[in-house]
Nucleic acid binder design. Structure first.
Lengths: 335, 335
DNA sequence: TTCACCCGTCGAAGCGCTTCGACGAGGGCG
DNA sequence: CGCCCTCGTCGAAGCGCTTCGACGGGTGAA
């Protein structure tokens, strides 16, 4: 294994100079820097992670906490993970994966042992049990999702409230007068997952603002659940001509259920979804949707965390504005 | 931060004794060990990862390389990840996530810098470009998947060859005389992904052994691809009464396509899948399937890797026997 | 009783890197 | 023309842990 002293010898400088040349923490002349870099390249030197953190420096590792609870949509989590890793690598960091089952403890352990320099937390709930830990923990953290009390924390998320409003605005503009929100499984609301609640708020607020009749129904996954929710919807709200769905695996079953009951989309019913773009585009009827920008959220989280690590001030909460993509599933009421 | 010297003082022993008491690398009297453990508990001591690896010891971190290429089924990869993390934690290790885009380099970097003690590699291809690296690399590794040349490597996988045979055996027993395999997208075969090839081999071998007419067709994802492949199948093999599908997102669309063309399942056509159990169970018609035991594979991989780390000898290749679960989609030919 | 040996513990060295303080050389200013 | 300051570099200390060699006391054998 080639170490920093080897590089130093090769470049004809001292180890500390090599360290400075590489980290840029002290000014080094151009000529020296170049010689050092050449030596590094020729010798294939890579700083030993152990050695680095031994000396109280950063480990250049970010922890990513993914709860993996039931009711979470797996592909979205995976997208977070991939984008976080990619963004982290672009900033010369690695990513440590933390799952539930160790929960808060994992976060504590990983930061206290210096294994990771900071944490990215996903699937944030309104009253998240991890919050006190994150607040008191000396290591910086970034949340993907916004809890009820966000002060002192750094959060990134899609503006789900605005997303809910945007969907309703779109449907109202098309002339619809009765709208329903088909949401995530009940356990998501019981857990008070932040984004689900916010979407409901936005949906309801916009419906009220437009003077629309509205209903909100959580819904599990699967064909049967879809069928049940559709029947209930048509019973409770007979004037229904528009639906917003916020439940990715349910998009297709929902469309089927409506069609089986004789409602064509978008002829008889307009449908809007809040889900990743590919899901919306690949549905049985391409669905007008607000995309969940998982990749961008992951990248932003890393960016913020790295900035915090470097001591820079960062905004408290970043909400990405929702963008609606019109596809084939929405049409003016009464065509 | 509480360090080993604090614990030593509290327990009234030297730091080295604490280290030995905790690692068990030298005999320590019961009384002393107990005092040390008490001190650790009272002080909430956790060995600093940096310090540990500084001294040339293990970092207690395992790297998990997940390629995240197109054509890979995301939920399976995620299951690997979750089970690997869980199993690793159970053995007091953490998991570093490596994705493609850095590829082989990531593996080299992470092991050479001592960031990780070993690597678990997923989505192994028959001729995997990472193989030379893994062979030459001093850090131990475990592959989930079996390449063409597996000697000197440690691999775990479902026995896909046997899985292919098992499906055909089942169908042959039911009296079917013409079977087709609908596989993964063409790029998976082009890449020569190991498990896909093995399944085809097993399928073909069993079909020949039973004297069945057979066909193998790769197939992309989506309703249209399913429809196309079904039409082609019925044209090429008019006597077709049984299909094996090895392409998770295609299970439902395939069923739909057959039904739209007037073939009922299992009345007119028996269907068998190789996919995770939940996918099979949740399909439009519950599908007889061979499960891909992702969770168990992940756990085994960790187990093997940790054993290698401790210097123990481990088997070269572990193939998990396939198990067929009969559901509603298979029936005797001509009902 | 004595010697050899082993068990349990300690002190010190060292892992590879970062960082602090220092120092020499060169340049700008008064 | 001399002084002070800055720039670029070096040497040494230290991070927290592990591990090696050593040592003292007790045990068993001769």
């Amino acid at each position: 294994m080639v170490k920093i002293t080897d590089v130093a010898r090769r470049a004809g400088v001292s180890p500390s100079t090599v360290s400075y040349a590489l980290s840029g923490k002290r000014p080094i002349s151009d000529a020296t820097r170049r010689r050092v870099q050449a030596a590094v390249r020729e010798l294939g030197y890579r700083a030993d992670g152990g050695g680095r953190s031994r000396s109280g420096a950063r480990s250049k590792v970010l922890a990513l906490a993914v709860p993996m609870r039931p009711g979470i949509h797996v592909p979205v989590v995976t997208q977070f993970a991939v984008s976080v890793v990619t963004a982290a690598r672009a900033r010369d960091h690695d990513v440590l994966l933390l799952t539930q089952g160790e929960g808060d403890q994992g976060i504590g352990r990983v930061t206290e042992t210096g294994l990771a320099d900071g944490v990215i937390v996903t699937d944030v709930q309104l009253q998240d049990p991890r919050l006190p830990l994150l607040r008191s923990c000396p290591s910086p953290s970034v949340l993907i999702g916004v809890p009820a009390e966000a002060d002192g924390l750094t959060c990134v998320d899609l503006d789900f409230r605005a997303a809910g409003e945007l969907c309703v605005d779109h449907l109202a503009e098309l002339g619809h007068r009765a709208v329903a929100l088909v949401g995530s499984p009940p356990e998501v609301y019981v857990r008070r997952t932040a984004f689900a609640r916010r979407l409901v708020e936005g949906f309801t607020a916009a419906a009220d603002r437009h003077g629309l009749a509205s209903a909100v129904l959580p819904c599990g996954t699967g064909r049967d659940a879809a069928r049940a929710v559709v029947e209930r919807l048509l019973r409770d709200l007979p004037a229904l001509t528009a639906v917003v769905v916020h439940n990715e695996p349910l998009v297709d079953p929902l469309i089927e259920a409506f069609e089986e009951l004789g409602m064509r989309i978008p002829g008889d019913l307009s449908l809007t979804a809040v889900c990743p773009a590919p899901v919306a585009a690949a549905a049985r009827v391409p669905v007008t949707s607000v995309a969940v920008p998982a990749a961008e959220l992951g990248a932003r989280a890393v960016h913020l965390l790295v900035r915090k690590l470097s001591g820079a001030a960062v905004p408290g909460t970043t909400l990405l504005p929702p963008r609606l993509t019109v596809r084939a599933s929405t049409a003016p009421r009464g065509h």
